Amino acid sequence: MKKQHYIKELIAQGEGAHLDFKFEISDAAKIARSLVAFANTNGGKLLIGVKDNGVIRGVKSEEEYYMIENAAQNYCRPQVRFTSKEWNIDGKIVLEIDIPFSSDYPHKAPDPNDKYKAYMRYEDQNILADGVLLKVWNKEKSKQDIQLVFTDELQEILHFIEKNEPVTKTDIRQHFGLAKFNTEHLLSDLIIFDVVKMDITDSGLLYYLKEPSG
Rank of each mutant, 00 (worst) to 15 (best):
Q13W: 09
S103K: 13
K45C: 07
V50G: 03
G14I: 06
S61T: 12
V50D: 00
S84Q: 15
Y65K: 13
D189Q: 12
S102D: 01
I56P: 04
Q4F: 07
K141I: 09
I192A: 02
Y105W: 07
E24W: 03
Y6V: 10
L187A: 00
Q73K: 15
F21N: 04
A118I: 03
V167M: 04
S213H: 15
W87A: 04
L133A: 08
Q174D: 14
D104R: 02
Y207D: 02
I31A: 01
V195S: 02
I146P: 01
I200A: 10
Y75M: 00
G91N: 05
V36Y: 05
A12E: 14
V80S: 08
I68H: 03
N88G: 04
P106C: 03
K85S: 15
I191M: 01
R121D: 04
I157K: 04
A118L: 08
K139W: 04
Y208D: 03
A17N: 10
E63V: 09
L46R: 04
P78N: 03
M120G: 10
V50T: 03
G177V: 00
E64P: 02
I89V: 15
A39F: 05
S203K: 14
M120V: 13
F193Y: 12
A39R: 06
G16I: 01
G44L: 03
H18C: 10
P106V: 05
A37D: 07
K180S: 11
S203R: 13
K3R: 13
A28W: 01
S102Y: 01
G214E: 15
A29R: 10
L186M: 12
N138W: 07
D52M: 00
E96G: 06
K60W: 07
D199M: 14
Y65N: 08
F193M: 07
F101S: 13
G204K: 07
G58Q: 03
P100A: 09
